[in-house]
């Protein structure tokens, strides 16, 4: 546990002593603010539904910026040598880093709470639906982070790590659209099951489905296990 905490603290200091965290949070807030204003004030509908959908896509494009340096940065800075020779288990390194990235995601999520002030002042939103949307957003973000972190462990180049992560996350987001082109019910079901956006839509509509929760958590577990196994194999 000590190891996870030490890695977590180091990660947080690294995030906030470099411009990356400030940049990602600022861009996300600006983007979310724009979408919120457009969706709520232009249409006059007092819900977060459409804003959540936009936030999801914005998140997918920004997550690689958070995760790209997680391991690639350790390789290029030659600090991976330190981590692998300190009394740390590989899963502790992976989990400590993941929790650090998750904190940035939570900061991003909480910062969007500012949009709720005018929504509650001037509208009559459904709190349960908003809460469910936020839970879905965080769960999807967790899955994206785990995938980005895994790809960061595969290459020394941070840009390459980001360039691999973006299309993979976009594929998970858009894979549901392939359902329309499939005759096979099995494939249709598979594409629907793998779709980040379809599961997220359930949360946005206020449905807290255990299948969707399990799906996102399973993606996290698989990506972090692959991450740990790859690092162990690399030794």
């Amino acid at each position: 546990m000590n190891g996870i905490l030490a890695i977590y603290r180091k990660e947080m200091i690294q995030y906030f002593r470099s411009p990356i965290a400030y940049f990602v949070v600022s861009v996300f807030l600006l983007g979310t603010g724009y979408f919120f204003l457009y969706n709520v004030f232009s249409t006059g509908i007092g819900t977060m539904n459409e804003t959540f959908r936009n936030m999801g896509l914005l998140l997918i494009t920004l997550i690689p910026l958070v995760t790209m340096r997680l391991f690639s940065g350790e390789y290029t800075g030659r600090t991976m040598e330190l981590l692998t020779t300190l009394p740390l288990k590989t899963w502790e390194i992976v989990l400590g880093k993941y929790l650090g990235a998750l904190t940035i995601l939570l900061v991003m999520t909480m910062a969007t709470g500012i949009n709720l002030i005018p929504l509650y002042l001037f509208g009559n939103p459904e709190t349960k639906t908003i809460l469910s949307g936020y839970i879905g957003f965080i769960l999807m973000g967790m899955a994206c982070l785990a995938i980005g972190q895994f790809f960061s462990s595969l290459t020394q180049n941070q840009i390459v790590a980001a360039l691999i992560t973006i299309p993979v996350l976009l594929a998970f987001w858009f894979v549901g659209h392939l359902q329309a082109y499939q005759n096979s019910p099995g494939l249709r079901e598979l594409f629907g099951y793998l779709s980040f956006s379809l599961h997220f839509s359930d949360f946005i509509r206020g449905l807290l489905r255990s299948e969707a929760v399990a799906f996102y958590l399973a993606v996290v577990a698989v990506a972090l296990t692959l991450n740990t196994s790859y690092l162990q194999w690399r030794r």
């Binding site: 180091k10 200091i13 690294q14 002593r17 470099s18 800075g77 030659r78 600090t79 991976m80 040598e81 330190l82 020779t85 300190l86 009394p87 740390l88």
Partner: peptide, 16 residues
Amino acid sequence: AQRLGYLPEHPPLYDV
């Protein structure tokens, strides 16, 4: 690893 100290060829430092 708890009983070992290692200085690699390139010191493993976090610049920030």
